[in-house]
């Protein structure tokens, strides 16, 4: 039994369901995976409580939702960490296994890590600079420390709300600026309210599917291999599908009239500086463990030197 906050019918849920069916076939019905999408089992903290009580065996949650369990889970969301997909691919090859180990130490077996996509700054007012942003009412998800610290470093006092309240917030004007992926902006209907988009990847969002280690170890070795293999196959599909979905959603947003603003080199450097300071603050707050962060920074430096 795996619970998620992702809505039924989303790419993530569809691919997981498909993987579940393949597992059923591969294990001749010995392993059946049931999914509870759309938050019917409660929010992130409730889902984790229920895993510990044994009502659920696993969860499909995003990095920021899982950061309450394991700090490094949302390390890819460090602001302006990546510049493009190529960098993401190179880093994840090295760092994903470290994150898996981190979860194992917390008692969870990671079935897959998948890219949800780049989050962009989208807003009702025209945001072209830090000063513009400071005038906005910026939403951050509740308990998302990275987003909160990032915007604070940018001189903004963000407004934390649960995801479920964000759309109402946009409608009532409680918030007017959000950072999210293009697909999510459309899926959550936020695109009907938003007018502008800053074309500079703000942060990279990942989703994890993980099982309670105890439940996982109860399966026979062959069944464990089948479960791992099918979720890995599903993960490859999700990564590819999300990338093209986000591309399409980005274009769709432009078509319905969102104005895209591409910061020039000078402005981009200013944004990156905010990101740098946010990271320093996060490191000072011990938001991440040193080895994982070191691995990312080392690999990124190598990658950029090679270019």
């Amino acid at each position: 039994k795996i619970a998620s906050l992702a809505p039924d019918g989303s790419t993530w849920m569809n691919e997981m369901r498909a993987a579940g069916e393949r597992i059923d076939a591969a294990t001749e019905g010995r392993v059946k995976v049931k999914f509870y999408p759309g938050g019917v089992m409660g929010n992130d903290t409730t889902v984790l409580r229920k895993i510990r009580l044994g009502q659920l065996q696993g969860a499909a949650l995003t990095g920021s939702e899982l950061s309450i369990l394991y700090k490094d889970a949302q390390i890819y969301s460090v602001p302006f960490l990546f510049r493009d997909d190529a960098e993401v691919d190179a880093i994840r090859k090295v760092v994903d296994p470290m994150l898996r180990e981190g979860f194992t130490a917390k008692g969870f077996h990671v079935l897959s890590i998948t890219g949800v996509g780049f989050a962009y700054l989208m807003s009702v007012p025209d945001v072209r600079s830090k000063t513009d942003l400071q005038k906005g009412k910026v939403w951050v998800p509740q308990n998302d420390t990275i987003a909160e610290i990032t915007f604070r470093e940018g001189g903004v006092e963000p407004i934390p709300l649960p995801l479920s309240d964000a759309f109402t917030g946009l409608q009532t004007g409680l918030i007017d600026t959000v950072a999210t992926t293009p697909t999510a902006a459309i899926a959550l209907q936020w695109h009907t309210k938003l007018k502008h988009l800053v074309d500079m990847p703000l942060s990279y969002v990942v989703g994890y599917v993980m099982l309670d280690q105890k439940a996982y170890m109860k399966l026979s070795e062959a069944d464990r291999a089948a479960v791992d293999a099918e979720f890995a196959k599903g993960a490859a599909n999700i990564d590819a599908a999300n990338r093209s979905d986000n591309q399409k959603a980005f274009e769709a947003l432009q078509e319905i009239g969102l104005k895209v603003f591409k910061p020039d080199a000078e402005e981009a450097a200013l944004w990156r500086d905010v990101g740098k300071r946010a990271l320093d603050k996060l490191v000072a707050d011990k938001a991440f463990t040193a080895p994982v962060l070191g691995a990312i920074e080392g690999q990124l430096a190598k990658q950029r030197a090679a270019e």
């Binding site: 009412k137 407004i159 934390p160 709300l161 409680l174």
Partner: peptide, 14 residues
């Protein structure tokens, strides 16, 4: 706070 000062208390909601 929201209407007059464009801000809010973070701890208010929880």
């Amino acid at each position: 706070l929201r209407v007059f000062f464009d801000t809010g208390l973070i701890w208010s909601e929880p």
